[in-house]
């Protein structure tokens, strides 16, 4: 931008608006390394006990590394599948002269705009019918 408008009023204005959000995030972090009792805003002692799940297994809870592994497996398989499927479809839609091409594209746009959350119930019921509910393989769906 040129020099016709001062920047600081805007910075000040937005800083005031942003301060609460930053504060919330700071306290979110501070809470993980302290034992601040409810009803006070001043953190007391520094502790890493809330982070100890990283180094040891807490009785009664799955290891954090198992959860990490699950996340990793889930993310990479999903990515791989999406990558393969959508690049194949994308290539054929953008580069090849397909019959009913604009119908397909239109469908994609509708799909994109359409919120899939509304189909949650149906998907849940399908999974139950197939007996896949609460199993790992279902996540790859």
């Amino acid at each position: 931008m040129g020099g016709n408008f001062r920047k600081w009023p805007m910075v000040l204005f937005l800083s005031v608006l942003t301060a609460p959000l930053i504060l919330m995030y700071i306290y979110l972090f501070v809470d993980t390394v302290t034992n601040t009792p409810p009803g006070t805003m001043i953190p007391n002692e520094f502790t890493l006990e809330h982070w100890r799940f990283l180094t040891e297994i807490i009785p009664g809870r799955p290891s954090i590394w198992l959860a990490t592994w699950n996340t990793f497996v889930f993310a990479s398989v999903t990515t791989l599948v999406v990558l393969v499927v959508s690049s194949a479809a994308g290539y054929s839609l953008s580069r090849l002269q397909l019959p009913a091409r604009s119908f397909f594209l239109g469908g994609i746009m509708v799909l994109h705009a359409f919120p899939t959350v509304t189909l949650l119930i149906a998907i849940f019921l399908i999974l139950q019918m197939l007996g896949l509910y609460n199993t790992l393989s279902v996540l790859f769906w």
């Binding site: 499927v85 479809a89 054929s92 839609l93 090849l96 002269q97 397909l98």
Partner: peptide, 13 residues
């Protein structure tokens, strides 16, 4: 040919 290929590639999606 490209038509068939295109449709084939669309199948997974």
């Amino acid at each position: 040919n490209s038509r068939h290929l295109g449709l084939f590639l669309l199948i997974p999606a």
